[in-house]
Nucleic acid binder design. Sequence first.
DNA 1: CTTAATCTCTATTGATTTAATAGAGTTACA
DNA 2: TGTAACTCTATTAAATCAATAGAGATTAAG
Lengths: 146, 146
Amino acid sequence: MLSKKCKYAIHALVHMAREPEEKFLIKDISEACNIPKKFLEAILLDLKRSGVLGSKQGKGGGYFLRMKPADVNLAEVVRQFDGAIALVSCAAHKFYEPCAECEDEETCTVHDAFLQIRNATVEMLKADTLESLVKKETKLKARKKR
Amino acid sequence: MLSKKCKYAIHALVHMAREPEEKFLIKDISEACNIPKKFLEAILLDLKRSGVLGSKQGKGGGYFLRMKPADVNLAEVVRQFDGAIALVSCAAHKFYEPCAECEDEETCTVHDAFLQIRNATVEMLKADTLESLVKKETKLKARKKR
DNA sequence: CTTAATCTCTATTGATTTAATAGAGTTACA
DNA sequence: TGTAACTCTATTAAATCAATAGAGATTAAG
């Protein structure tokens, strides 16, 4: 399972991607997404440090998307907050660590199984950009009205 | 990521599935799979309680597979030890819990995205039975020799 | 009937991570 | 100069994880 921090980050980003030109106050995002304000502060700061968000201090300030919604995907967000996407560290790419159980990865069937799952998951997470998520949301809402 | 307990359980089960008729000592599995013996005791006991393993106490005793290798899949093992397979609780089936962030699941794009990932993951985990894993292992080992 | 082998059970511990909060600091506008 | 806003460091309480300790119960064999 994702950490709450990561889930909060995703919801905050999707919220901002609905109005990609806007500037947002921490307080407003916090209320709109039901995220504890103080916790959200740390999250937005992290996203700023990684270049996804920009900010302006002082009166009239706020956070805004620095990257284009089409260029931000969930794989990167998940990695930033929760590390490896794979279910076992020996099947991870960016956070790879060998494991003591399978002595030979090449012939370890457990390694092989989780590598396939990791690859499929990463592919799907990469396809989930902020842009595609917002578009999908529009479709889901339209479908419901009917 | 899976807990070590879960990962250990999977390795122990695959080990046993290589000789599905055999009886295994905790000590032997522990050494073969590099799993701390005391920790493994608890794991095997859990697997016995859930019906996957059987055991015989006393001298000449040990653990053995009660279910057929083809009938044990990784989705069930993961659920038993780590709970939900989904990355967010609102996308889980067996461990579903609503989340505060998306007020309306039907139109929540985050929910939708993680539901797709969950479904794909569960499908793959279900296809990974002890039988198929052992078969795959044989193939991997044969391929390596060449 | 005694011994050794083996699984069973309860409890505890230390380390780590998670989720959240507190409170002071900095910047910028009007 | 005051207020609105982001920034930073530190702390904490709770939960979870990984592992260990040690006593108990059962069975086979001699």
